[in-house]
Design a protein around this nucleic acid. Structure first.
Lengths: 147, 147
DNA sequence: TATTGTTATACTCTATAACTATA
DNA sequence: TATAGTTATAGAGTATAACAATA
């Protein structure tokens, strides 16, 4: 009467859908918190990357999957707001180093804390053991590599 | 020597970070697939919502968290491409019904299949039991409600 | 009066192409 | 020649404010 499912296809589908939904919910939170500080998600990502790095425009563009020319505008606007700074690279006359200003560093930590505060309670229905399991499963899913 | 951690704070932090990272990885896939079909993520979301609904502009804007005026442009561009259609609502002379065209319906199914095909393999390192567990944990995390 | 949708306007994000300065 | 970054230009996405038509 029932055909055997093609190797768990329905479950796969539902698992993917829940991953996608979780992504949308999470991104909505990030967007909202960023917007509270007049930041776009991209601006927030820039600050997040610069949290522990000082990089050139091309490298930054690479992290974000954007064009160099796009970075120029993003960096210019963030610099104008005093969130990051530009300085000529000592070793390469063409290159420019991008790094957080003190205000930018302060802001990104504050925003990060806010995000944790909002997202963490969503997982507190889970037992500590379940939280560890979810963490580990997500890690392994992510590490399954690109594409 | 070691202070007791404030009630699992570090683990919470790492769990949230893995949720955020999973969201970025997932959104990157969605963006890439959408772009292959010359769709923005927002356009794709519009098509996804209309998959099983016929709604007015205000309702659609509500689902997406956007302004009505923003929808006008999004809908106009998608309509121009033949992906959706507008029709006056029979019951309310002010309202407009938005719904997928046959081409739009075909496209959204194709894109959805592509997304599942790309994301599903990421979870195949997990055993079937682990997959069910991840699915269930994500669901419970999502259902923890908004904000 | 309130609601539905559009228009006008402005700004951010994004890409492509052309350019400069340096390597 | 190749690379780092900027500028010019154009289009999409977004919001705010003002508006017309209908309820």
């Amino acid at each position: 009467m029932f055909e055997p499912l093609p190797d768990g296809a329905v479950e796969q589908d539902e698992l993917v859908d829940s991953l996608v939904q979780a992504a949308f919910v999470t991104m909505a939170v990030l967007n909202r918190v960023a917007a509270e500080h007049d930041l776009s998600l991209t601006q927030l990502r820039v600050l997040g990357i610069l949290r522990d790095r000082r990089v050139g425009v091309t490298t930054l563009a690479g992290y974000l999957g954007l064009e160099k020319s796009t970075m120029t505008g993003l960096v210019a606007r963030a610099e104008k707001r005093g969130l990051l700074q530009r300085a000529p690279n000592p070793g390469d006359g063409r290159a420019v180093d991008i790094f957080l200003s003190p205000q930018g560093a302060e802001l990104v930590e504050r925003v990060h804390g806010q995000i944790v505060q909002i997202l963490a309670p969503r997982t507190t229905d889970l037992t500590p053991a379940e939280q560890r399991r979810l963490h580990s499963l997500l890690r392994r899913t992510l590490d399954a590599g690109p594409s």
